[in-house]
C-alpha cells in the first residue's frame, strides 16, 4: 500500500466530499419539499389530482438513476428548443443537472415514504382535529404532517444515506465529487486500490456522520419518547 499516495490525495478527496455533500443536502432538501405536495396529491381520491404524482413516482422509481441522469444531462441538450430556452443556463451545467436529477429521484422515494407515514397516523388523531373544527389545511399542517415527519424520519434518513452513495454517479457527468476526484487521481497515479479505498473511506465517514445526525434529530423530534420534564412548584 502506497501511504504517501493516499496522504497526497486527501486534500482533493476532501474537496470532492464538499461537492458530494452539497449535492446531497441540496437534493435531499429540495426532494423533501417536492415530496410533501406529491405525497398529499397521491393520497387524493380524485383521479385527476393523483394521476400526475402517480406517474411521476412510477417513472422515477422504475428507472435507474444513471439513466435519468444521462437523459437530463445529455438527452435534453439534443433539443434545440431546450438549448434556446432560458432553462439552458441551468441545464447546460452538469452540477445543476445532477441536482435536478437527484432531487426528482429522491423526491419520488421520499414522497412514498411520506405517503406511508401519513397513512400510519391513527385516524382517531385526525378525527380529534376535525372535531375541534380544524380545516383540512390545519389538519395537515398541525397534525398529519408533523406526525408523519416524525414517523418517516428513520426511513428518510435511510434514503439520504442511499442517496449519498448513489451520488457517486455524478462523476459520470464530469463532476468532481468524491468518486470523480478518485477517478482523476487514479488516472494520474495508476493506483486503483489506494484511490478507491480512500474514496470508500470518505463515504464511510460521511455515512457514519449522517447516521449520528439523524439519530440526534430523531431524539430531538421525539420529545414524546423522552422522560417528561417535571416542573416543581
Amino acid at each position: 500500500m502506497n501511504w504517501q499516495a493516499i496522504t497526497d490525495m486527501l486534500p482533493l478527496l476532501a474537496e470532492g466530499a464538499g461537492l458530494t455533500l452539497q449535492l446531497l443536502f441540496l437534493s435531499g432538501f429540495l426532494g423533501l419539499c417536492l415530496a410533501v405536495p406529491v405525497a398529499i396529491a397521491r393520497l387524493s381520491k380524485t383521479w385527476w389530482i393523483n394521476i400526475l404524482p402517480r406517474t411521476y413516482v412510477f417513472l422515477f422509481r422504475g428507472t435507474p438513476l444513471l439513466v435519468q441522469l444521462f437523459l437530463i444531462y445529455y438527452g435534453l441538450g439534443q433539443f434545440e428548443a431546450v438549448r434556446e430556452s432560458i432553462f439552458w443556463i441551468v441545464l447546460k451545467e452538469a452540477y445543476w443537472c445532477a441536482v435536478i436529477t437527484f432531487t426528482l429521484h429522491t423526491g419520488a422515494y421520499i414522497s412514498e415514504i411520506l405517503r406511508g407515514a401519513i397513512q400510519t397516523v391513527p385516524v382517531g388523531e385526525v378525527e380529534a382535529a376535525r372535531a375541534v373544527g380544524m380545516s383540512h389545511r390545519q389538519v395537515y399542517t398541525r397534525i398529519l404532517l408533523p406526525r408523519a415527519f416524525r414517523i418517516a424520519l428513520p426511513a428518510y434518513g435511510n434514503e439520504i444515506i442511499l442517496m449519498l452513495k448513489a451520488s457517486a454517479l455524478a462523476s459520470t457527468i464530469t463532476l468532481l465529487d468524491i468518486t470523480g476526484m478518485a477517478r482523476t487521481v487514479y488516472a494520474k497515479n495508476y493506483l486503483p486500490m489506494e484511490s478507491f479505498l480512500t474514496a470508500g473511506a470518505f463515504y464511510l465517514v460521511l455515512t457514519y456522520g449522517l447516521t449520528l445526525f439523524i439519530r440526534y434529530l430523531e431524539h430531538r423530534l421525539h420529545a414524546d419518547r423522552k422522560e417528561p420534564v417535571v416542573i416543581i412548584g
Partner: peptide, 25 residues
Amino acid sequence: QKQLARLRARIGFVFQSFNLWPHLN
C-alpha cells in the same frame, strides 16, 4: 366546509380512545 368547521368547534367530542395528539404535550 367552513360552516361545518365552525359548528364542529361548538360541539365537543370526547373519544373512547382519547385521541390526544402524541407529538404535543
